[in-house]
C-alpha cells in the first residue's frame, strides 16, 4: 500500500484556494526558502531523537528500531520538538495511505468545494496524488495543487491531467536573488508559469513581498503581472516573521510588511494588466 508523509490535514480552510477546502500538507520540500514560515516541513525526520526528551507531554518515544514515534493523543501542540530539530523536520508526521486520506476528505465532503494539496511540496508525492485525485474527483470535488514550481509539469503531464489547477509560487525572478533566497535555480518555476498559463491550469500565482527589498520585489511583480494578465489571481503576500527561522528573520526582517507597502505592488501589478492582484 502506497503511503505519503502527511504533516497536517486541515478540514476547513479559506486561504488555500477558492471556497471552503480541505488542505493536506505533505512533508518534504526540495526548496529551502529563507522566508519559509513552516521550515519544519522541509525535510523528513532522520530519527536522531533529539526531540524525544524535550517533549513535555511524553508524546514522543523511540521504538525498537530506534525510530522516533509520535502519539497524537498525548501531543499538546507546544511545538517544542520542531524548535529543537536541527534538520528542519518534524516528528509529527503520519505516513498515510490513500484510503486514510480519503477517509478524512469524505468527512469534510459535504461542506467543501474541493481539496488542496500543499506542503512541503506536494509534487514530491505525485505517485500518491495520481491515485488520490481521481477518487476525489469522483466525489464531485476539485483538486488543486499548491506548488513551488520545482516540478516540471510539461515533462510529465500525468498529474496535471487529474488536477483542476495549480496555485504557483513565484518567489523571485532575478536569477541570483532566487538562488540566494531559495537555494535553487528559478528556471523550472518560470517555465511552469508559462506552461500552466498556456494549458489553462494556472489557478493563481503568489509572491511574498519582503520588507525593504524594493528592487527584488518590483522585478518579480513586474515579471509575473506581465505574464499572467487577467488570466488568474495574483496574491501579493505580506512577509510575516512568524515561524521564520531566527537567522533568516535577522536577515529579512523581524516585522510584518506594512499593508500599504504591499498594496503598492498590487497596484503595480494591476497597472500592468494583472487585474486580479490583491494583498493578503
Amino acid at each position: 500500500m502506497r503511503k505519503a508523509p502527511v504533516n497536517k490535514i486541515i478540514s476547513f480552510s479559506n486561504v488555500d484556494g477558492p471556497g471552503n477546502r480541505t488542505s493536506i500538507f505533505f512533508q518534504g520540500c526540495p526548496f529551502n526558502c529563507r522566508f519559509c514560515h513552516n521550515p519544519e516541513t522541509i525535510n523528513l525526520c532522520e530519527n536522531c531523537g533529539l526531540c524525544v526528551d524535550k517533549c513535555p507531554a511524553r508524546a514522543l518515544s523511540r521504538d525498537g528500531d530506534g525510530r522516533v514515534r509520535w502519539d497524537p493523543s498525548l501531543c499538546v501542540q507546544c511545538d517544542s520538538c520542531i524548535r529543537v530539530c536541527p534538520h528542519d523536520a518534524s516528528p509529527r508526521v503520519r505516513y498515510m495511505t490513500v484510503e486514510e486520506v480519503l477517509h478524512e476528505i469524505r468527512r469534510a465532503a459535504p461542506y467543501i468545494g474541493g481539496i488542496t494539496v500543499s506542503g512541503g511540496e506536494c509534487t514530491l508525492q505525485n505517485d500518491f496524488l495520481l491515485e488520490l485525485f481521481p477518487l476525489v474527483r469522483q466525489m464531485g470535488k476539485t483538486c488543486l495543487l499548491d506548488s513551488n514550481g520545482s516540478f516540471d509539469f510539461e515533462k510529465d503531464p500525468r498529474i496535471l491531467a487529474v488536477s483542476d489547477g495549480v496555485m504557483l509560487d513565484v518567489k523571485a525572478v532575478s536569477p541570483a536573488w532566487h538562488e540566494h533566497l531559495i537555494g535553487a535555480k528559478r528556471d523550472t518555476v518560470l517555465k511552469n508559469l508559462d506552461y500552466l498559463l498556456s494549458v489553462g491550469k494556472l489557478q493563481e500565482v503568489r509572491t511574498v513581498i519582503l520588507p525593504g527589498r524594493d528592487e527584488e520585489n518590483e522585478v518579480t511583480v513586474r515579471y509575473v503581472a506581465g505574464r499572467i494578465g487577467s488570466a488568474c489571481g495574483y496574491k501579493i503576500i505580506r512577509y510575516r516573521p512568524f515561524g521564520v527561522r531566527e537567522k533568516y528573520q535577522k536577515e529579512l526582517g523581524e516585522f510584518t510588511v506594512e499593508e500599504e507597502y504591499a498594496e503598492r505592488y498590487a497596484a503595480l501589478a494591476r497597472s500592468l494588466g494583472a487585474s486580479q492582484a490583491y494583498v493578503v
Binding site: 497536517k8 486541515i10 476547513f12 480552510s13 479559506n14 486561504v15 488555500d16 488542505s23 500538507f25 522566508f35 519559509c36 514560515h37 513552516n38 500543499s118 499548491d146 509560487d169 503568489r206 511574498v208 496574491k235 503576500i237 512577509y239 510575516r240 512568524f242 493578503v280
Partner: peptide
C-alpha cells in the same frame, strides 16, 4: 474561533 491554521503560504 474558526481560523486558518496556516497563514497564507510563505
Amino acid at each position: 474561533v474558526q481560523h486558518h491554521e496556516e497563514s497564507a503560504r510563505q
